[in-house]
Amino acid sequence: MAKLKPIKINHVSKYFGKQQVLDDIELTIEPETIYGLLGRNGAGKSTLFNIITDRIPLSDGEVTIAGQPVTDNDAVLNRIYLMSEANLYPSRMRVKDIFQLTAQLYQGMDMALAQTLAEQFELNMSTRFNKLSTGSRSIMKLIIALAVDVDYVFLDEPTLGLDANHRRLFYDALLDSYAKRPRSFIISTHLIEEASNLIERVWVLQNQHIIIDESTESVLNKGFAVTGPTADVEAYTAGLNIIGHEALGNLMVHYIYGELKGDRPIPDTVSISHIDLQRLFIYLTNQEVSTDEN
């Protein structure tokens, strides 16, 4: 097919009744890229996914591919798959029939891959959907998400209910599938540590807004922990974007997001190191008002 076009989310807002869940969201989803959507419980991650994939209507703005709105646009929605908690399948249908049905609804499905994955995850394809455990339902949906022939795969908390072995298997399968057929994966997750190395670009949703939309590398580059005696640390970090702190007696850690002052001498008593995505996320989303850009 022709070169893929990015999905554009233009000024999207969403209200449930009078309550605003999303406010003026602007994002671009490039082809063949793995994104991570991070946000606290109730931040609106699932709502955003449901809007992009046209499962629920938006209140304002639009979602487009190549200038065409996705709303009711089957040709475009055929290229997008959302794996979510919702159970949309006939309860007495068998797993293998659900696979067949999905293949018909979309532009096809890699049945050989689905079968291999079912074996690896020990999912019996003859079991009826209503007889599957919660974990097995997640696994079935993940297998579909990886095998279905689409260009944009949205995974809403994909590893929910999976044990450590199955999570590992899932990440293996995801990267294998991505290598064989590059396409975009947009993953929302609470298990930031596990996913952070997979994610090329990070979105953080907080207080109805996207407060971070940057490459993982550049986000990590801007996160610092400044450790030392309180007075020295405070002197050094004055005027910087301090997103959190921890104190242990007179030992102080300031967490910074943004540029350090290159011309400011670092006292001998103070040490500076980078922090991981999980910690960065925790401090950024604890803030009332976020100042992600200088």
Binding site: D172, L175, A179, N197, L198, E200, E217
Partner: peptide
């Protein structure tokens, strides 16, 4: 795959 790192990285 082995280390679960994005291939671009």
């Amino acid at each position: 795959k082995q280390f679960h790192i994005n291939p671009a990285t």
